[in-house]
Design a protein around this nucleic acid. Structure first.
Lengths: 232, 232
DNA sequence: TAGATTGTTAATCGATTAACAATC
DNA sequence: TAGATTGTTAATCGATTAACAATC
């Protein structure tokens, strides 16, 4: 067995042994993904943890530690091959797994999301949109015709759907989530503000609260204001 | 000096002594804000850390620890007065400071954000929208007429603007940010994906990368898939 | 007063950083 | 080989949890 193969095995073992990779590391992976994308675009072939640390404003130590959770991606004395590293990060994050998604709720947010290149960049394929309002049923958004919510079950019977993006009003979120879970959907990207975790142990729920970020900004502004007041 | 006053003094001191409140706590505050809002809506007058912990799926210890960073909001043997607690959290987060914001970029995302009740709920007032495209200049979005970017300087001279929401293409983000900083804008809510931190020490930048959240979901889906494969 | 629940200290846990031997 | 830089261990730092005395 070559060293590479042995490493792979250990690697696999780690992945199997539950979530041995800490949440803090996982949360940082998309950021590596973004920076590596940029580096490739700029034609950079190779990078050291030191260089990358300067670029990303994190410690080189953290970068090496993070990347090593998934195996030795670098080479002593050389650094990391940008393309290889990007490929591995993509693998880890499931880019290229070909996940498919439906969007439920074709309001302002739902439409804006579908028109965003975000999904394409991350290899997630939007395969359908749904709504209850006759005002939007039948319209086409970025190539997706909005279907009647009543067609949900039939549609999911015909198409493989991995992810449901929920951008519908809060008070309908729970009942829709239950329908989705009954249909075997594995992941819910939840913009509704309704707590949908713990509904089903096999369904992954990722919550987005954009407003929380706005509030963090306001907190900083307020404390900065206060500090200036004090300085007087 | 009453006990309350003494407490306030200590409290103030803490706030002044730099960022003595840990980032982890600050990040959690908006969540408390959301839950307290709901509790008020449901008519609940009083709550213990134990009850709230069950509701929010965090430890009671953490709740008490978090709230205590800002002073004693509760009462032994009683718990927390929901209204009072909400009021204090709002104060801390700068809700009601009357911050004003402009949105730069009236594309899909910019328009969706402006139409969202988020800003209103958090006491942030949208006072203007800007874009460079003749296609959108002049249209009205949720009561806001989209202005030509050229009017930015004149507008900011006439109106108090605290926050700029950037939803414009990445490659124009830097030059616009520099104009905003020159105009004395204090906070940037950055959706562009361009790194704008460290541009100016007095400008607070809060970055939003919605795609990162999607990738976290994909990571969970992939590892779950992999685990199922292994089980076979 | 007795019961409940906070505020707060101490203990534990996890995450980050520093350091350096391994090695390309 | 010498220099560079990783992978990895050990040390530090910060955040969470447990425990309980203070007190309403």
């Amino acid at each position: 067995m070559s060293k590479e193969e042995a490493r792979e095995e250990v690697n696999e073992e780690i992945k199997i042994k539950g979530n041995s990779v800490s949440p803090a590391v996982i949360k940082r992976l998309p950021r590596y993904f973004r920076y590596l994308r940029e580096l490739i675009r700029s034609g950079k072939m190779r990078i050291s943890s030191g260089e990358l640390s300067e670029l990303m404003h994190v410690t080189a130590s953290q970068i090496r530690q993070d990347l090593n959770c998934f195996g030795g991606f670098g080479q002593q004395g050389y650094g990391y091959n940008v393309n290889y590293l990007y490929t591995r990060i993509c693998e880890i994050l499931g880019v290229g797994e070909g996940f498919s998604a439906i969007v439920i709720g074709a309001g302002n947010l739902g439409r804006a999301l579908v028109r965003n290149p975000m999904f394409e960049k991350r290899g997630v394929d939007i395969v359908g949109m749904f709504d209850v309002s006759p005002d939007v049923i039948g319209i086409t958004v970025a190539g997706n015709t909005v279907r009647n919510m009543e067609e949900l079950e039939a549609f999911c019977g015909e198409h493989q759907v991995d992810i449901a993006v929920l951008t519908l009003p809060k008070d309908h979120a729970l009942s829709v989530a239950e329908r989705l879970i009954a249909l075997g959907i594995k992941g819910i990207w939840n913009f509704t503000g309704k707590e949908l975790d713990h509904l089903h142990p096999d369904t992954v729920v990722e919550n987005v609260h954009i407003g929380d970020s706005l509030m963090t900004l306001c907190y900083e502004l307020r404390t900065r204001d206060e500090r200036k007041e004090e300085e007087k």
